[in-house]
Each structure stands twice: as C-alpha cells, then as structure tokens.
Design a protein around this nucleic acid. Structure first.
Lengths: 160, 160
DNA sequence: GCAGATCTGTTATACTATAACAGCTTTGCT
DNA sequence: AGCAAAGCTGTTATAGTATAACAGATCTGC
C-alpha cells in the first residue's frame, strides 16, 4: 500500500505528472479536458489537500474562469467521474487523485490534527466489506472508505 | 457478518429492543435519554431506513416536540455520538444502529435501487484500511465504510 | 437549596449543491 | 465547407444541509 500525503515532496512534479496523466487518459477515451477542468485539477494538485467546491470557485473567480457554483461543481463532477479527483464524503471536500490513470479503490486517511488527507490504494473486491456484501447478495458499484484520526506527526505532538 | 436491512422482519420488536437497549446504556453511562432524543431514535427505528435531519424535524414538528433545525441536529448528535444511530455520509442521512450497545465498526450497504441501507458489523482494526493506516503510522479514531450498489432483489429486477 | 452542568428554544446565518434554460463550441459526418 | 448532434459554459434562482450564538429551563450532585 502507499499513503502519499503526510510527507513533504516535490509538488511541481506531481502537478505536471498529474495533469499530463489526465490529459493522456482524456485523449485515449475521447474526453475533453477543457480549460476549466484542467485548471481545477491543477488547483487541487497545487494545494495538495482537500478543498471545498467554494474554495475552488474562489480561485476560478479570481482568475476569470467562472463565478457561479455550477462551474466548479461541473468541473468536479467531471474529474471525480473519471477518477482524476475524489470527493471526501466525510468533509464534503475534493482532492486530486494521487494515482491518476491507475485502477483502484481509493481509501483516505484524514488527519484531524493537520487536516491533511492521504490517499491509500486498495485492491478492489478483496476486503471485508466485499465479503460482507457478497454474503448478503449485494453488488458493490462504488465504495467510500475514509478513516479519521491522527497522522504520525500530529499524534506525536498531542500525546506523550 | 450480518447485514440486516434487506429482508422483512418484525419492526415493533426492533423498536422496543432498540429503545430499551439505548435506555439501558444511558442509565449505565449516566446519559440522559430525553424525550426528544428518545423520540428521534424511535422515528429512526420505526422508519427503518436512512432519514435526513429535516425529515425527522418534520415529524418532531408535527408532534410538537420542536420546530427548528438545531433540535433535530442536537438529538442526532447525541445519538450518533453514543452509537445509537449512525450518519451515512454518502447520503447526508441518519439511520438507527442495528446493534445498539454492541461494540463495532459499522459498515453500510446502500442500495441505489430501493434506497434501503443495510448495516454490517465488522470487527475493528482487522481490515486492510487498518493495515494501511498502521503502515503509515496513522491512528484511526473513526472509520466511514459505505458501499453503494444493488441489493439482491433490485439486481434481479434490473439486469437479467 | 444552591452551583454547575446539561438540555431546550429560537433567531439568524453559513455552507453545500443542483435545477433549468439560453447560448456557445466542438465533433462527426457528408 | 456546411450541417446536425452532442457536449460545454454562463447565469439565475433555489433547494438542501448544518451550525453559531444566546437566553432560559431543567437536572444533578453536593
């Protein structure tokens, strides 16, 4: 497993890598990575944390790319639908996917200390939830896996 | 595992059992199961599905138990905090716990066909998410596990 | 019977999200 | 190139979800 997010790293490279991976996927699948969509993805990659739709809208507005909520929500719908970004249901916020182009069931570790969110990638269909679903005759189409708690750094600062 | 929710059963008995289990827990822990709180729990148990806070508020209002949103939200906060009810983050709705008094990590199966929600109980700390968290030095305090898909009945009706 | 803690009632407001419709741009086809 | 269909954008309006803040009532323990 990998849990990108709680450690410093080179942001410039993840932005470029992320955008180009998305562009590649769009080309391959005949999707349009329009200016607004691309910019929203960049914003998410730049900030590198979970952002609310209205946070994003504010940036778009300041750049003259849109001023009304639907602009942000549509771009986010596109990005989440195609796996370029994810919605953190627990926070009603959005975050760039840390493995654009990969096939995965995303899971998130949300630190309540520093508000950072790390994305872990789990193999689909192998967990207890899948077993429970199978036992109940339930067919999973989408799974939300989110854990709240403290990252190593914040835990060190709070308790002994 | 158990996935209560997709099969018919005796509601009267779950309401009584649920309320009395909650009452017992409250007594044991010095918590106040006030009229509003008890009634909200009953409403959730009666409906036996996920309800929005405003759905609940509407019932409370019709019964003269409260008319403003905070009344419903406070009761729901109490119930969820103490494990008598759960919030389904994906739906922004609430549901009574199907195992009040039990110690568990709740997981939910949300049928997009019939909108029923089944609660499964998983043993805490034994899944892949826990492993991923441990590997990242992350301490989980709360987990959200929700799967959307089709229950056996709805799947049968949709596809071949 | 008093002090502190907890719960309730209420107003106001903040935050999150989508419906609906008009107009523009791109795409695919001939 | 010219056209039609599909998809994207802009905008207005509104729906849906949630909480802050403060005053007053009630309960609890001493």
């Amino acid at each position: 497993m990998s849990a990108i997010g709680f450690h410093p790293h080179n942001h410039d490279s993840c932005i470029k890598t992320g955008v180009s991976a998305a562009a590649k996927t769009c080309t391959a699948q005949g999707l349009q990575l329009t200016e607004v969509r691309r910019r929203v993805l960049e914003i998410l990659l730049e900030r590198h944390r979970a952002l609310g739709a209205y946070d994003i809208l504010e940036v778009l507005r300041s750049e003259g790319l849109g001023s009304q909520p639907p602009v942000a929500y549509r771009a986010l719908d596109f990005l989440t639908k195609h796996g370029f970004a994810h919605k953190i249901e627990r926070l009603n916020k959005f975050i760039a996917c840390s493995d654009i182009g990969g096939d995965h069931t995303p899971a998130f570790l949300i630190c309540t200390g520093c508000n950072q969110v790390a994305e872990a990638h789990l193999e689909a269909g192998t967990g207890r939830l899948s077993k429970a679903a199978a036992a109940a005759g339930f067919t999973i189409e989408r799974a939300v896996l989110e854990a709240e708690g403290l990252c190593e750094t914040c835990r060190g600062q709070t308790a002994a």
